[in-house]
């Protein structure tokens, strides 16, 4: 392979110039190796430093978050105890939190599983789900979630492209709809309602799958926070005073 040294004109290396050039080349080689070694070391340590800094940042943010959460919980507890102390006659905030969807809720209810049927007609549309939720409210549901998205007063069920979005989050078939309420009443009232008949027709015509089962222990999550924010509407002052009741 390497025939560099095959040319052998054995001239003794005595000339100062030759020795010097040899030395210079070796010096060059040494410099290159040293520079490369140092460069690589610095590169490695730079990436390592960056990684460590990022990890520290994440840890610090997590600590901050934990602290803020603890403070929030503490303040909430303080507010509760102060309200009780002052004997303020607020409406039961526990019930309110369930009705508005501010907190997750659990209880007996029904689980509805809906899936696309055959053909283009068998696709479950946003209007189908809207009717279903309306029917569940009619049947006596107290809290409803669609595929893990709680229906609050600002929630919408809309079609966006091919997907259906609830609370601006896309959901996908099969859809699990959970409704809290009296299981038996929900089952009978829903099946007798126009919505129940509509879904039965959908099942017959387009093989849309629809199953409703009673459960004694269902859980619905809270409404996402950005669907609870109100920026323009205010409480009427008279109502406010009445609510405070002092």
């Amino acid at each position: 392979m390497d025939d560099d040294y095959i040319v052998r004109e054995q001239t003794a290396s005595v000339g100062l110039l030759r020795q010097a050039s040899f030395g210079v080349v070796l010096a060059l080689i040494g410099t290159v190796f040293a520079a490369a070694a140092i460069g690589l070391r610095q590169q490695g340590s730079g990436a390592e430093l960056e990684r460590q800094a990022l990890i520290d940042d994440v840890m610090k943010s997590q600590d901050d978050l934990d602290r803020s959460r603890a403070i929030a919980a503490q303040l909430r507890a303080d507010v509760g105890s102060l309200e009780r102390e002052r004997g303020i006659d607020l409406p039961d905030t526990g019930d309110l939190a369930v009705v508005t969807g501010e907190q997750s809720a659990a209880g007996p209810g029904v689980v509805v599983r809906v899936d696309n049927g055959s053909g283009a007609d068998g696709l479950v549309a946003d209007t189908d789900l809207q009717l279903l939720v309306n029917g569940l409210w009619y049947a006596g549901a107290e809290a409803v979630s669609v595929d893990g998205e709680r229906i609050g007063s600002l929630s919408s069920i809309r079609a966006a492209g091919d997907a259906i979005t609830v609370n601006f989050r896309s959901i996908r078939a099969p859809y699990d709809v959970i409704a809290l309420g009296d299981s038996d009443a929900l089952l009978t009232r829903f099946s007798q309602s126009p919505t129940g008949q509509y879904w039965e027709a959908r099942h017959r015509q387009a093989k849309v799958r629809f199953g409703m089962t009673a459960t004694s222990d269902a859980v619905v999550p809270a409404v996402p926070e950005r669907r609870l924010e109100v920026t323009h509407a205010r409480l009427l002052s008279g109502v406010e005073q009445e609510g405070v009741g002092s």
Binding site: G23, L26, V32
Partner: peptide, 13 residues
């Protein structure tokens, strides 16, 4: 001289 050159080169780097 070559050995010196190598040492000097590494030291310089």
């Amino acid at each position: 001289i070559p050995v010196l050159g190598l040492v000097v080169g590494v030291a310089l780097g």
